[in-house]
Amino acid sequence: MTDVNALLADFAEKEASPPVRGYWSSVANRLRYDYVTLFFLAVILLIVLISVFAPLLAPFDPTKSSMAYRMKPVGFRNFVLGTDELGRDMLSRLLWGGRTSLLMGLVPVALATFIGGILGVLAGFLGGWVNTAIMRTMDIFYAFPSVLLAVAISGTLGGGTKNGMVALTLVFIPSLCRVAESATTQVRGLDFVEAARASGASTLSIVQHHILGNVLGPVFIFASSLISVSILLGSGLSFLGLGVEPPTPDWGLMLSTLRSAIYVQPLVCALPGVAIFITSLSFNLVSDGLRQAMDVKA
């Protein structure tokens, strides 16, 4: 009988030892097989690298104009992607413009995630009048369409990159706060939080150890889906003359100033739009992929 027992022990050992894996590493493992997401993640990385190294990559000074070379088509002499209405090199402007667009996409979302997240977790965990106060205030902001709100805020604050970011941050705080609040409310009622309370833990300790880890996921997913929105809104603000100020290269601003030349050089005029499209699409698809990978029933 001993060899049977040895066999069985071996069997039990194999049976009982699946690879030990944390939540985030299992997310990473799922992402590994998601080629679409990986591809667009690579695209985003490329855009980031290009923006970071724009000064090295740009063949010309993006702000140097030349009346002689206005509105030249794609592939005209050294201007690989043509020139704009002031004769500035399109390629250089697009490369530099990525910087402002990415900043416009990432900074407001990051700030709003931080502020909205804190407010949402507070409202969700404390409940009662704190919840009512925070959430009703958010509802007031939420009642306005986001574009209108962004325009109104940056209109009040005045133009400029910094003010544009502040406006976008304010626009995103309510929705992020809502997501954080609903996730917190959900987690707060679960048995393991009750168990933590039953062990005599303080509110702060429970939030830190049991709430945050479970709320961060959904908040993070939602925030990642806002990046593309932020890029679009930022471009929109610049297009309206409320965000980035000339002559700083920015995709939205470029689209705005080039629109009068749409019948002269349609291809050149469309380039900033294409850049915005590719960037926001990439962020959007990566966010979708992340959501799928993170949607594991734990």
């Binding site: 062990s199 833990a201 029933k297």
Partner: peptide, 24 residues
Amino acid sequence: FQDSYSSLNPRLPVQDSIAYGPRV
């Protein structure tokens, strides 16, 4: 608690879930 998906914190290794009370 009744066993269900919600009785343990999904983001904590089980030894940390057990150690949490004494740490508190």
